[in-house]
Design a protein around this nucleic acid. Structure first.
Lengths: 135, 135
DNA sequence: CTTGACCCGTGTCTTAGACACAGGTTTATA
DNA sequence: TATAAACCTGTGTCTAAGACACGGGTCAAG
């Protein structure tokens, strides 16, 4: 199948398929008649794997490592275990960071809505931000 | 004050001070003797404002807009109100995305630890990822 | 006067694609 | 069969918020 066909089948854009090809996750053959990329069923499986791993928080660099080792016949075992531990810690930290940010913003919004009575204006907001304390 | 002095005073790196200068948040004078940037107390105040706004989820582009309008004597009011609404929606979406990602990863980790009995190996993890269903 | 710490501007790198461009190919329709 | 729409190719640039490197100039203490 060609780029768009694969992209549509997996629910991504053509650019994503091309990008995953560029970085080495997909390895299409070339149609000798016109030079177009030809994706096999194996590419489709790899793309499905890649998208699921991405949804679990792995980076594309992680995925490239995994599929490269898998393709060489090596067991991706130690790599994958290390990556899982690493990404889990990353996502946990990111989650907590975002949670704190969200909390700060909620508090700021509440402070804004608790402003005296008039509509808040730009200066008041700027003053609010300026007086804001580090969490 | 010079770059490093300001950076140290505000707890950021010199690169950050230079970057904020590049994008127009800070406007140092130049020391004519050597061409070095000379930051004033107003720059320090601006940097403090910028860092607090950043901690509240505003982008640097947002901050540039705000301080540019403030510097021109315009009221930043309508801009700031629009930005606040925009960023609050952004952070809310980001928080929920990260929360979902964190949940998916937690479930994956639990599934991994609930694996039969042996140590999990790479193939098993890959199989887990492959069979993983979209949330 | 030397040494180490600081400064300068400029340029490149990072993620995960999105978008644009100029031109070649395929496919459906008239 | 001609043409137009939709597709394809590679290449290059852009995103956010700095980090890092380079080659060279400047400052302070010893």
């Amino acid at each position: 199948m060609r780029v768009k066909q694969l992209a549509d089948a997996m629910g991504v854009t053509s650019d994503t398929v091309r990008y995953y090809t560029r970085v080495g996750i997909l390895n299409p053959n070339r149609n000798p008649a016109n030079g177009y990329k030809q994706y096999s069923q194996q590419d489709k499986n790899r793309l499905r794997f890649a998208l699921r791993a991405r949804d679990l928080g792995f980076t594309l660099a992680d995925i490239v490592q995994i599929v490269t080792h898998a393709g060489r016949g090596d067991s991706p075992c130690p790599i994958v275990r290390r990556l899982i531990e690493q990404r889990f810690a990353d996502i946990e930290a990111r989650f907590q960071d975002t949670e704190r940010l969200y909390g700060r913003m909620q508090k700021a919004m509440q402070a804004w809505q608790a402003m005296p009575d008039e509509e808040p204006n730009g200066e008041m907001i700027c003053a609010l931000i300026e007086q804001w304390e580090k969490p």
